[in-house]
């Protein structure tokens, strides 16, 4: 279970972006979070990925309550959640090649030896060819770079996947290809998905259920 329980978060203590958001994703389930831009969907996604400490509320991941965030969070908890962001350009270190970007989580967790085989496994799964892997971000298109960013999120085989507007900058065909790659991974591993976005048609098609962020009021699900 990925449980967000009455979470309030923001960047200034006095003026949180949203208050009291509650949302639950069951293992293997895919949930779409729909809402207009500027209401805090991305902030909620960052909280769910342990990247942003909420002002109040709880995040419970597979029964463990998360008490530390970012670097301080236990590594097993952090790497159990994979994230893909909206803009591949800012989400990829411009100095690394695509292969290094995909292998980075393995190197960072001291599993360097597995890097090559894992990259060779993931690249075709997201539709990247071998010649693209040796290039740096500025030498590939947005779509190709986002494929690499998705592969990086899958490198450590996370049990949870968070896609924050993953396809907002992409054309229809690349969108369909990336969604297909995510679904293939989920079918193989049974990972849960939280897909954040504003495209109702896309999320309805992609996810088991969608939750709405109406009039800038966050979802309040009770279980």
């Amino acid at each position: 279970m990925l449980e967000l329980d009455t979470v309030t978060a923001g960047y200034e203590r006095r003026a949180p972006v949203f208050r009291g958001a509650s949302l639950t994703v069951a293992p293997g389930e895919s949930v779409g979070l729909l809402g207009p831009s500027g209401c805090g969907k991305s902030t909620l996604a960052r909280v769910a990925a342990l990247l942003h400490r909420p002002d109040a509320g709880r995040l419970v991941l597979d029964g463990t309550e998360v008490r530390a965030w970012r670097h301080r969070a236990p590594r097993e908890l952090r790497t159990a959640v994979g994230v893909v962001f909206q803009q591949p350009r800012t989400a990829a270190d411009p100095r690394l090649t695509l292969a290094e970007i995909i292998a980075e989580p393995l190197r960072a967790t001291g599993r360097r030896a597995e890097a090559d085989s894992r990259v060779a496994e993931l690249a075709p799964a997201v539709g990247l060819t071998a010649d693209l892997l040796t290039r740096r971000p500025h030498e590939v298109s947005d779509g190709q770079l986002q494929r690499a960013c998705l592969a990086r999120a899958l490198t450590l085989s996370p049990r949870w996947l968070i896609c924050d507007e993953m396809t907002a900058m992409l054309d229809a065909s690349t969108t369909a290809a990336l969604v297909a790659a995510v679904e293939t991974y989920r079918a193989e591993t049974g990972a849960g998905l939280l897909a954040v976005g504003h495209d109702r048609v896309l999320l309805n098609r992609w996810c088991d259920r969608t939750v709405e962020w109406k009039d800038c009021l966050p979802p309040k699900e009770t279980r």
Partner: peptide
């Protein structure tokens, strides 16, 4: 930058 977020999420 998001790439730092991504690195943190990747266990760095």
């Amino acid at each position: 930058r998001p790439f730092v977020d991504a690195a943190v999420s990747g266990g760095a």
